[in-house]
Simulated assay, not measured.
Amino acid sequence: MWSEIGYGTTENSPVTFCASPKDNAERKSETVGYILDHIEAKIVNPATGELAALGTTGEILIRGYCVMLEYWDDPAKTEECIGKDGWYKTGDIGSMDAFGYCRIQGRIKDMIIRGGENIYPAEIEQFLHTHPKVMEAQVVGVKDAHMGEEVCACIKLVEGEECTAEEIRAFCKDQIAHFKIPRYVLFVTSFPVTVTGKVQKNKLCEVAEKLLGM
């Protein structure tokens, strides 16, 4: 018997991590479960491909019977995502503990590089969602001449609530690392989404930079 918590990709048929009903509250709320039988998983440095230490954040790679053979009629994409040794690059950022439980941090393509610091939007978004006035928060990186990128939080407020950028930044102070505190805070009424309802971060970034006059 399995709980409803799980993680995987279409390319991996599709579930690779799954939780147990016997897991404690921390594992149920903070992880996507542990690696399933007969499947291998590892975390690597996305820049070098070197194996990361347990608990260290990096790209999640999967190998096993579940990995697809190839992308249809797209050998270049196949070669990009599946190594000759059979490891599939998920493009997801996460960490794994000694028991095989995985924590998801976000997507590599969404990562913000601010002055050499790697910032994962999902971490900031999760924190902002604890603010009582915030209904939904999406964090993107916007261009900056000095730092390369700066953190921008796009926030949809709870209906009837009012808030200021200063209030959001004050809420973050001393709660998350100073370099992760959004330099820009935009209040929006909607987000650009796909037909399946997934937020399009690339389009949201374009909207944010336009609103900021960049």
Rank of each mutant, 00 (worst) to 15 (best):
S3W: 11
G141E: 02
E161S: 10
G106R: 03
E166N: 06
E59W: 12
V140K: 01
M135F: 13
G94W: 00
I43P: 11
K42W: 01
W72F: 15
I62A: 06
V140E: 05
D85P: 04
G58E: 11
D97P: 03
T10Y: 08
Y101F: 12
Y7E: 12
I119T: 06
N118K: 15
R183G: 15
V44R: 05
E26I: 15
Y101I: 02
R27V: 02
F187G: 08
V142I: 09
A98E: 11
G55P: 07
I181K: 07
S95C: 14
G83Q: 11
E159Q: 08
K210T: 12
S29H: 10
D85T: 07
C152N: 04
E4S: 15
T164P: 01
S20Y: 04
S20W: 06
G115K: 02
K180T: 04
A76N: 06
V32I: 02
W2V: 14
W72D: 14
N202V: 15
E80K: 13
H131E: 04
I93C: 05
E166I: 03
D37Y: 01
C154V: 12
G6E: 14
V158C: 15
T194S: 07
T56C: 05
T10Q: 10
I60T: 10
K77D: 09
F127S: 07
V207H: 03
C18Q: 15
A177L: 05
M147A: 15
V67S: 07
L157G: 03
Q138Y: 13
T196E: 14
C152H: 09
I112Q: 03
M135V: 03
L204T: 09
Y184W: 12
T48P: 12
A41R: 09
A145Q: 11
C81R: 13
R27W: 01
V195F: 08
S29E: 06
K42H: 02
I181N: 11
H146P: 03
E161W: 00
G160H: 07
D74M: 05
Y184R: 08
L51H: 07
L211C: 09
Q126T: 03
Q200A: 14
T189I: 09
I62M: 05
G197T: 09
K84W: 01
M1L: 10
I113S: 10
C163H: 11
W2S: 10
Y71C: 03
M214V: 13
M96G: 07
L69T: 11
Y184K: 14
G86H: 00
G106Q: 02
Y184E: 07
Y88R: 00
A25W: 14
E161R: 00
S3M: 03
K84N: 02
A122C: 12
A137H: 12
L128T: 08
I39Y: 02
E123A: 13
E209M: 12
L186C: 08
E50H: 04
E162C: 07
R107P: 03
Y34S: 15
E79W: 05
Q126W: 04
K22S: 11
G148F: 00
S95F: 12
L212A: 13
T9P: 06
Y65S: 15
D73L: 07
A208T: 08
G86E: 05
G213V: 06
E159G: 01
M1G: 14
